[in-house]
Design a protein around this nucleic acid. Sequence first.
DNA 1: ACTTCAGTTGCAAACGATTTGCAATTGCAT
DNA 2: ATGCAATTGCAAATCGTTTGCAACTGAAGT
Lengths: 148, 148
Amino acid sequence: MNQATPIRPDYEGELRKAGVRITRPRKVILSILAEAGDHPDALEIFKRAVEIDSGISLSTVYRTMKLLEGVGAIHRHAFEGGPSRFEPAGVEHHDHLIDLDTGQVIEFHSERIEQLQQEIARELGYDIVHHRLELYGRKRRGKGLRGG
Amino acid sequence: MNQATPIRPDYEGELRKAGVRITRPRKVILSILAEAGDHPDALEIFKRAVEIDSGISLSTVYRTMKLLEGVGAIHRHAFEGGPSRFEPAGVEHHDHLIDLDTGQVIEFHSERIEQLQQEIARELGYDIVHHRLELYGRKRRGKGLRGG
DNA sequence: ACTTCAGTTGCAAACGATTTGCAATTGCAT
DNA sequence: ATGCAATTGCAAATCGTTTGCAACTGAAGT
Ligand SMILES: [Mn+2]
Ligand SMILES: [Mn+2]
Ligand SMILES: [Zn+2]
Ligand SMILES: [Zn+2]
């Protein structure tokens, strides 16, 4: 459904503009995020970062993720069970389906659902600040599909 | 599977039937859950339990919650930020709206959304095992409503 | 009621993910 | 190049939760 948008974001520029100092570790982490197609967690980002610059610490990854989240450059997802996973913001809003067998994260979007959420909140007298819709499932087996 | 009266769960009976030993701490915790109208976390349950029987430990609360979750007697919710919160199962399925200012949890249900989720998963080739829909918002201010 | 023993408990210590204090380092405005 | 606040790596701390273990207890059998 969703073939990733060709990477575009001039992260460093946007961040500088937001008053964030562009350091060596941050450059590395930003580059990793920019080309991450998956939804890596802090440790995974750390591992990828060390490949590029062995001096980076896990603390810095965590601190950077928090900072980037703060300025709205990334989104944090706390899928059930595991640690927080991240993805660059700036992509259109979408929700996630998590494959319980593989951990794979599949993105989807339903304007209908988004609308219904608004209606529900409105009826309850609330404004939605954000929401979380996660489907946990497994590949449909049966029919003509070969099993996993 | 279990379509019973919406009120008054005979927890102990059901648990005995599931091969769970009914101990003193468990009795206490079950009684707390049975009359909890909110979605208390482990620590809160512990506090309420100590009021009834001061000998209960937090570990036992955690162990019991895990056990009850295992036999399907309760649901665990990991709302963003805080610790896991629990509620008796056996109530009809619903999702939650969390008041960001008060932490209050409001329940709602949309058959329409549930359906749409199914459709989406189906299109992606998945069967939904379970899902999580949480709206985070604040009371609509403006109009004739007094502020909080 | 008494015995029996696997299931259960409280406690403290361990845990995994994340945060933080601190002294050393570094980006970047001057 | 200089100066200094922002940032770093490291280790220790934190938070919610889990676990090892010896003592205890529910409930099945007598
Ligand atoms: Mn995504
Ligand atoms: Mn509920
Ligand atoms: Zn959405
Ligand atoms: Zn639902």
